[in-house]
C-alpha cells in the first residue's frame, strides 16, 4: 500500500532557480535562504521518497487564458521545463508517475472533485524550484512527480476549505493504491508577497508565522481563512498559500513539525519552508532538525 510519509511546504520564487542554476546559492544574499534547506536535503537523502505529489500553480506557462482549470492533475509520463521568457531552466526533465496519477485522478472524481486531467504539459518554476531547493542539482531528479496544479491566478481560486478537502481525498486515494510507495505531498508558493501595483513588496512576518504555526498540531482552523484575508495581510500573491492547505489536508488530523525555516527577503517575497510528519499513529521517525532557523531581520 502506498502511504503519505511527509508533507513539505516551500516558497517557489523563480529567483531561487536562477541562484541555483548560476551557482549563487551560497553568496551573501542567497546563502541564508539555501542554508535553511540544508537539513531538508540531508533528510530527503535518507527518506528516499518514491513519488512527490507536487501542489503548485502554473504562472501563465502551460495554461494561457484560453483554458483555466481550477484543479489539474498531471497523468503524463514526463514533463519538460517551460520557457518562461528567458529560455527553459537547465534542470532534468520531470518524470511522472502515470499509474499513481491516474489512480488518484479517478479516485478524486469519484469523491466529487471536478478534476482536469492533463497528459501533456510543460512545468514552470512553480514546480521545478521546489525540486531544486530540496534535491540540489542532480543529473536526474531522485523521484517521480505527480504535478497537481491549482489556479491561483484568475479569481476566484479554490477556497482554503476546498484545498484542504482535496488533500484529504488525495490521502484516501494514495492509501488505496496497491503498490508499496513512499509518497510525499509538497505544498508550494507563498509566503507573503505582492508583485504588482503601488503596494508591491508587502511582507507580513507575523501573519506568515501564525500560518506556519497553524500547520502543526491537530487544528484545522487554517482551512477557514477567506481569500480576502490572505490578500489584505500577505499581499496579492500571498493567496498561493492555499496550496499549502492541500498538503496539510493530506497529512490527516495531526502533524508534527520536523523542520522550519523563514527568511525575508528573496526578491519580492518572504521565504517559508517547513517539513511536517503526519502524527496519527503512523509510527514515522520524528527526528527533526536541531535548530529552527531564526526569523530573519528580527
Amino acid at each position: 500500500m502506498a502511504r503519505i510519509t511527509a508533507g513539505v511546504a516551500s516558497s517557489h520564487v523563480p529567483l531561487l532557480g536562477v541562484a541555483s542554476d548560476f551557482n549563487k546559492d551560497r553568496d551573501d544574499y542567497f546563502g541564508p535562504i539555501f542554508a535553511g534547506y540544508d537539513w531538508t536535503r540531508e533528510w530527503e537523502k535518507a527518506e528516499k521518497p518514491d513519488v512527490i505529489i507536487l501542489v503548485y500553480n502554473d504562472h501563465a506557462s502551460a495554461f494561457d487564458m484560453k483554458i483555466i482549470p481550477t484543479f489539474a492533475i498531471g497523468c503524463g509520463e514526463r514533463y519538460k521545463s517551460a520557457d518562461e521568457g528567458w529560455g527553459p531552466r537547465a534542470v532534468p526533465d520531470v518524470e511522472g508517475h502515470p499509474d499513481l496519477a491516474w489512480h488518484i485522478a479517478q479516485s478524486l472524481v469519484l469523491d466529487e472533485f471536478d478534476m482536469t486531467i492533463i497528459n501533456e504539459m510543460d512545468v514552470d518554476h512553480g514546480l521545478t524550484v521546489p525540486l531544486s531547493m530540496m534535491f540540489g542539482k542532480p543529473d536526474a531528479w531522485p523521484c517521480k512527480v505527480v504535478p497537481l496544479a491549482v489556479n491561483v491566478v484568475t479569481y476566484p481560486p479554490p477556497s482554503g476549505n476546498r484545498c484542504w478537502a482535496l488533500g484529504e481525498a488525495v490521502r484516501k486515494a494514495v492509501e488505496s493504491f496497491p503498490e508499496d510507495l513512499n509518497v510525499q505531498v509538497w505544498g508550494t508558493g507563498g509566503m507573503s508577497h505582492q508583485l504588482q501595483g503601488p503596494r508591491a513588496g508587502l511582507i507580513n512576518k507575523e501573519w506568515d508565522n501564525m500560518f506556519l504555526d497553524g500547520l502543526v498540531g491537530d487544528s484545522d482552523h487554517l482551512r477557514r481563512i477567506p481569500h480576502i484575508e490572505y490578500l489584505r495581510e500577505t499581499g496579492s500573491e500571498g493567496i498561493e498559500m492555499v496550496m499549502w492547505l492541500v498538503m496539510r489536508g493530506a497529512l490527516g488530523k495531526k502533524t508534527r513539525a520536523l523542520h522550519r525555516h523563514y527568511h525575508v527577503p528573496c526578491s519580492n517575497t518572504a521565504i517559508g519552508h517547513m517539513v511536517l510528519r503526519p502524527d496519527n499513529g503512523e509510527g514515522l521517525d520524528m527526528t527533526g532538525s536541531d535548530t529552527v532557523t531564526a526569523i530573519a531581520a528580527e
Partner: peptide, 15 residues
C-alpha cells in the same frame, strides 16, 4: 533596501 529591511508593512495598507 526596503525589502532587505523586511519589506513593506501591511499597516495602513489593508483596506
Amino acid at each position: 533596501a526596503m525589502m532587505m529591511a523586511g519589506g513593506r508593512s501591511p499597516e495602513g495598507m489593508r483596506s
